[in-house]
Design a protein around this nucleic acid. Structure first.
Lengths: 243, 243
DNA sequence: CAGTGGTCTAGACCACCGG
DNA sequence: CGGTGGTCTAGACCACTGC
């Protein structure tokens, strides 16, 4: 009976308030990806709603890719497929059906620093943590990345043990800081390598580069990361699905 | 009563069969963007379903961007926003809030021809119509495109009056041939200009190029167009939204 | 005002999964 | 087998639109 709706404001439809409540619980790590969330019937009883309304809430979260239904079993938090979709640039092996592997990652810099202008504008703050890394495939450096994340959201990121940092950042954002990257905008341009980049990527100064500016957003459309990535144009391949 | 379901095969859920039936009618131009489709209640009666089930069908089509609900008024076919989303490459003016204009288009070739290997594979046929054109912005050529479309779907395209061909192809596909481009995959790489391209784009042979391979699909996920577009890398800018 | 979509209910039966 | 999600019904009342 009654309604333990969390943060959600009144006068919104019940199915939206429940959706937001569930989203908050998911982001808070209430459920793992292995255990189902409460069944539709249980949720209906708990929130004093009918099953149809609960279904509509869950439909929304499934549509957003946060939940996954498994008939006969339950509804589960979807292990975010981050880089299946979000790492898509740089397909290094041709599309012969072979899996594309995730580049390994070498950390160069990780520090609290003022944000460069563009990053500060995108993130709405100058107080950021800067991450610089080089990503490699089979020991060949392919991507030079500078990443900026708001210090307010990622307090303590600079001091995380280096072992805790895998090659993929978005899972860490989620698991360690509860920040779920849901959407991103990539801006792709063409440039040439300066000395620093050339050295890191084993190119010559002035060699052609693919340059990607990315701004990533969380569920609530708040910007949570800005990055610039550079790679040799010669091997570059970027795939984009347009709907 | 009973069910004038169109093409859809049996044993699928009713809401899917209705969705497909409606999609077919939309594609066939049954309704214009100014007149509403039949109300939910009417559809329910016509197909012998409950309103809830009809709503679920419509929900699907709204989610796909084919329909648009207007509370108190009706449900309308959504005027396809074709190139707002599908023409995104090459933003020529910086993002100072100014509208980006659609490049004008000069037709070079339009003929029935055998498809090059890549196009034939993507389209599943060799019998295609080939279109070559150069797109310009303020009289400056910026994009050289080769486009291949299946002759079976676009019978008579080669003989359309040139006046009927605006700068945007997807609206023509839809209005003249009932082919609605719903999704596309872009593959972006960098290359260098050969003589032909260099001449058309007023570049020097060997100048860096952005190269986009695109395969476009209709509502039923059938490939309906393959194209390769090339532009000077120096001015190139491609924006991609990742969800 | 009548007609539309928007929300919500309280059930039903089915298909599937797991123990 | 019981519990889960998947489909579907036949209503209710509300919010909005357009005449």
């Amino acid at each position: 009976m009654s309604a333990p709706f969390h943060t959600t404001d009144d006068r919104l439809p019940a199915y939206i308030r429940l959706r937001d409540t569930l989203a908050a619980q998911i982001a808070a790590g209430e459920w793992t990806a292995e255990q189902p969330i409460p069944s539709e019937a249980k949720l209906a009883k708990e929130y004093g709603l009918s099953v149809g309304t609960v279904r509509k809430s869950i439909d929304g979260l499934v549509g957003e890719g946060l939940l996954e239904r498994r008939q006969g079993s339950g509804t589960y938090v979807k292990a975010p497929s981050f880089d299946a979709t979000l790492f898509r640039f740089f397909q290094w092996r041709e599309v012969d059906g072979s899996q594309l592997s995730i580049p390994s990652s070498k950390l160069i810099v990780r520090t609290r620093a003022p944000a460069p202008t563009e990053a500060a504008e995108a993130l709405g703050t100058q107080d950021v943590i800067k991450i610089v890394r080089v990503r490699s495939l089979s020991d060949l450096p392919v991507l030079f990345e500078e990443i900026y994340i708001p210090a307010s959201l990622f307090a303590g990121f600079e001091t995380l043990s280096e072992d805790a940092l895998g090659p993929l950042l978005y899972p860490i954002y989620f698991e360690q800081f509860g920040v779920l990257v849901k959407r991103a905008t990539d801006d792709l341009t063409f440039g040439s390598a300066d000395e620093t980049v050339a050295k890191q990527l084993r190119l010559k100064t002035g060699d052609p580069l693919a340059v990607i500016h990315r701004t990533a957003f969380d569920i609530e459309h708040k910007p949570v990361e800005w990055r610039i990535a550079r790679g040799s144009a010669a091997q570059f391949r970027y795939r984009s699905e347009i709907n």
